[in-house]
């Protein structure tokens, strides 16, 4: 068949198809959209034919554009419902963390070793702690935790200040998780830097407060949300290390492909870590500063830690990745 004849015979079908696609793109589907998949496949074969026979560039170009527009509509990913969210919560996320248990312990060490080192330093040689916190940091800690009883609760007396702190924690802490993750792609350097840095800074604060201020006001405050926030941070670190290791040690794949494969593995980790940190912000904003007996707060804090251990050890077992 000659080019002109081919175009003449098929033109009407192409125009119909284009009208249908345009109507769906505008969100007002016309009658006959049910036929779109069939028409799409016809168009695909037209394009294959036209480019195989090397017809005019303009005609092939138009068919190419029409196929892309249809493909975009037909292959749009369907929004996943509540079911996949629940599955992520009770199975996929803990299983993903367990799969990376080596990196989990490595990242935990990168946070906790500097943390306890700085806490110990508060007794051995306070200069180290002072060097890290700086005069402003120390003054801030004393203002919050220096007094006899819970000053945080006083600070939160103004209307809406719980919500203010909640917003602040979301913005600050979840952003830290995302940076820990993204920094990993630079050959793990960003992840290591942020984990160790946070370990040092948090350990120094905890050590300084325990040494020089009123420890109870500090520990009762952090008890409730500590498990969510710190485990979440470590898991964000695992996600970042996963990416960075793909750059350092791509194995038998090219680096680009290895990064893609590692990112797929790290996606549930970073989403889960973000979710945990959001929960931590809720607790930190609305619970941690409440004026309640210290024993109750410690009890809740310990209960959350135990729940986390159980969650990550037990849930999602047996459900193998498809």
């Amino acid at each position: 068949m000659k080019e002109g004849g081919f175009e003449e015979r098929r033109r009407e079908a192409w125009d119909d198809y284009e009208r249908l696609v345009a109507s769906v793109e505008k969100g007002k589907p016309e009658a006959g959209v049910n036929e779109l998949p069939r028409r799409f496949r016809e168009l695909c074969s037209d394009l294959a034919l036209a480019s195989h026979r090397m017809y005019r560039g303009q005609m092939v170009g138009r068919l190419n554009e029409l196929v892309i527009r249809g493909y975009k509509l037909l292959y749009r990913s369907r929004r996943k419902g509540a079911e996949s969210f629940v599955r992520f919560l009770v199975a996929d996320f803990p299983a993903a963390v367990r799969r990376e248990w080596r990196l989990f312990w490595l990242c935990s060490a990168m946070f906790w070793v500097p943390f306890f080192a700085m806490m110990a330093m508060a007794w051995v040689d306070l200069d180290w702690v002072q060097a890290i916190l700086g005069p402003q940091g120390m003054a801030g800690l004393e203002a919050m935790y220096g007094g006899e009883e819970e000053q945080i609760a006083h600070l939160r007396e103004e209307f809406g200040s719980n919500f203010m702190m909640f917003g602040h924690y979301i913005q600050n802490n979840v952003s830290i998780d995302f940076r820990i993750f993204a920094g990993g792609i630079v050959a793990c350097l960003g992840t290591i830097f942020f984990l160790v840095y946070n370990g040092l800074a948090i350990g120094a604060s905890a050590g300084y407060v325990t040494y020089a201020c009123n420890p109870e006001s500090f520990w009762t405050f952090v008890a409730g949300h500590s498990s969510f926030e710190l485990i979440g941070m470590v898991i964000a670190g695992v996600a970042g290390m996963r990416l960075g290791l793909a750059v350092l040690k791509p194995g038998r794949m090219t680096r680009g492909k290895a990064i893609g494969a590692a990112a797929k593995k790290s996606l549930p980790l970073i989403l889960g870590a973000a979710g945990m940190t959001v929960l931590a912000a809720f607790i930190e904003g609305f619970w941690s500063a409440q004026r309640l007996p210290a024993d109750l707060k410690y009890g809740v804090g310990i209960a959350f830690w135990v729940l986390h251990v159980g969650y990550f050890l037990m849930l999602g077992r047996g459900a193998r990745e498809a």
Binding site: E158, G160, M164, G167, H168, Q171, V174, S175
Partner: peptide, 29 residues
């Protein structure tokens, strides 16, 4: 309205616009 609620809202706004604005639009239609 008074109070600190709006400061918290601004923090949330910052967080969502900064991290989630591109995700929302690119994952959308």
């Amino acid at each position: 309205v008074g109070g600190q609620t709006s400061v918290g809202m601004i923090s949330l706004l910052w967080f969502f616009v900064w991290w989630w604005y591109p995700v929302f639009f690119e994952a959308g239609r």
